[in-house]
Structure formats: C-alpha cells, structure tokens
C-alpha cells in the first residue's frame, strides 16, 4: 500500500494554442480536503480530468498514491472516485442498475456488487428513487447519483467537480456532512464556486486562474487576506460625526461609511475592538450594532483573481 498522496508535477494541458493548465505543481496528503477555486475557465475541471486519467497531460505528470497517471493509469484510477463536471450518467438506466454496473466495474462481483450499490443508495438518500430511470430524476437527484457512483468503492482519493451544484440547502448540508465524515482517512479534492463551502468543508484552498496557481492556503489564511479582516463595523446614530472622530484614532487606517454602516479598518497589526468600544463609551454614542469582521472570502477571491482592491 502506497502512502496516500497526490503529487502534481508541472502538470500542463494545451488545447491547440490555448493553455488551459500551466505547469501546475502541488501535493495533497491524507486528511486534506482541498478546495479548488477559480473563475470560469480557470482550468479546474481540466486539472481534475488529468488527475483521473481521462485527459493525457500535454506535459508534466501526477502521481496518485504513487501511481503515475500516465504510465500506470489503471492503478491510479482504481484508487480514485470521480464525479465529473455535470455528473454524467446513463439516463436510460435505473439508479440501481447504474450503480450495480459501476460496482462491477470497480471490481465487486455478484452479490457484493448488489450490496455495495444498495449501500451507496442509502448513503446518498436515494431510497425513494432506486427503480426510477436516471433521466427522469431532478437535477439534484442526478447529482446525488453521481456522488453515489463516486464513493461506491470507498476510494482513498475522491475528486469531485462541483459536487453540490444544483442541490437544495438541505441536501447541500447532507452532502457536506458526508464529505466531512469521510475526510479523515482520505484525500478529497472538490472544485466549487460556493465560497462558503470552502469555509465549511475544506482545510486547504487553492485559487487558480488561467491555469496557474495563485494562492495555496487554509481557508482561514485566505480570509485573513481580506482587507476586512479584523475591521470593526458599527451602526451608530450619527454616523458622520462618529466617522470623523474614529478616523482620528492612531489605530485606524481608514473609515468607510456605506449604507448606514460604519467600517473602521485597522492600521497594520493593530487591534481596534477595545479602543473603539472605549470611544463609544466616552462619547455616549447610541450604538445598535458593533461587530468584529472576520474577512470576506468573495472579496479575497476577486482581489486574487482580478488584482482588484475594491
């Protein structure tokens, strides 16, 4: 048994003249839930297609549990469970028949194929529809069939391309729960456009754009890059007056007033909470709300991918 590990080495994919993935290198280890972020067309799906052996890299390679995805593709694929983008499946088959087919393809035989298909049906809450043909299912159910298919052989590496796309809030919660439950002994790579998902699910996040790795950090680390990180927002009765007072504070770098909310940004490394609550008390302001900002992921995302400082 090889150590649990994905290792991408200068992985590249060119489509004609277009460079979809550009010398991407990274390592992922056991227990990591890696969130793949990036704008549309960043190369997330293309990277996943290469890791799962569907696309041959133009150059570079990757090792999955020590198996080269080019040289030893079958062995690499055996340890991977993959949900392709859009969760494709054979529409004319029933859920149960489809999952049994996948189970057999994954090496289960006879009865054990039937049992593992049944287990996957239960795990993804598909008990209501096992005899329905997949093409007649709603989008969210189709996605769950795709997920069931990916986990049926309890793979050590799970690669999920937009796993919660199209799920209702309850199902999103369920699926995140499922992923979190499985994550301790596995490697899980998910791509998503839902930033709160990264926060809720991942312990590592990579932002890529134009096929290049821009940021590789923890979700907390990402949030800390936000200019809102450690800022204080307050709702106060006379915001203009308060703004002018607060902007005089040596700990404050900048004060912004937006839609009745006053946000004070700290100067480098300074803490604001105490000094602001003192100021509020001294001036006897009527404050209806006072909160410490953690930071905003969407703003970090924009900043990183567009170089934008709003």
């Amino acid at each position: 048994m090889n150590d649990l590990c994905i290792e991408a080495r200068a992985l590249s994919k060119h489509y004609g003249g277009l460079v979809a993935v550009d010398e991407l290198s990274f390592e992922v280890g056991a227990g990591e839930v890696l969130g793949f972020l990036g704008p549309n067309g960043a190369g997330k799906s293309t990277t996943m297609k290469m890791l799962t052996g569907f696309l041959a890299p133009t150059s570079g390679t990757a090792l999955v549990n020590g198996h080269d995805i080019v040289e030893d593709s079958l062995a690499a694929r055996r340890s991977i469970g993959y949900l392709p983008e859009g969760a494709p499946s054979y529409g004319e088959m029933t859920v149960r028949r489809f999952l049994e087919f996948i189970a057999r393809a994954r090496g289960f035989e006879g009865k054990s194929a039937i049992t593992s298909a049944g287990a996957a049906i239960e795990r993804l809450n598909l008990d209501r529809v096992p005899e329905q043909t997949i093409e007649t299912l709603s989008k969210g159910f189709k996605r769950r069939v795709g997920l069931a298919q990916a986990i049926i052989h309890d793979p050590s590496v799970l690669i999920l391309d937009e796993p919660t796309d199209g799920l209702d809030p309850n199902q999103k919660h369920e699926v995140r729960h499922l992923i979190r439950d499985m994550s301790s002994e596995k490697i899980i790579v998910i791509s998503t456009h839902l930033l709160e998902e990264v926060d809720a699910l991942c312990n590592r996040a990579m932002i890529i754009s134009d096929g290049r790795l821009l940021v590789d950090d923890t979700p907390q680390g990402l949030i800390a890059r936000s200019r809102y990180h450690d800022a204080i927002t307050l709702v106060v009765e006379q915001p203009e007056k308060a703004a002018s007072v607060l902007s005089e504070l040596p700990q404050a770098r900048k004060v912004e007033l937006r839609e009745g909310e006053l946000t004070v940004f700290p100067a480098d490394g300074k803490k604001l909470f105490e000094v602001i609550s003192d100021t509020v008390r001294e001036n006897n302001w009527q404050v209806s709300e006072l909160r410490l900002e953690a930071g905003r992921l969407d703003e970090v995302f924009r900043q990183v991918t567009q170089g934008e400082v709003s």
Binding site: L74, R77, R78, Y82, P84, P88, S89, A105
Partner: peptide, 14 residues
C-alpha cells in the same frame, strides 16, 4: 454527447 465517456473511461478499464 452526453459526457458519459468521461465516466466510462475513468473507471478502471482500458
């Protein structure tokens, strides 16, 4: 057309 080729060819078969 339906994208199932990606599913099929990432299963452990040649």
């Amino acid at each position: 057309r339906s994208g199932t080729v990606e599913l099929l060819l990432t299963l452990p078969l040649t």
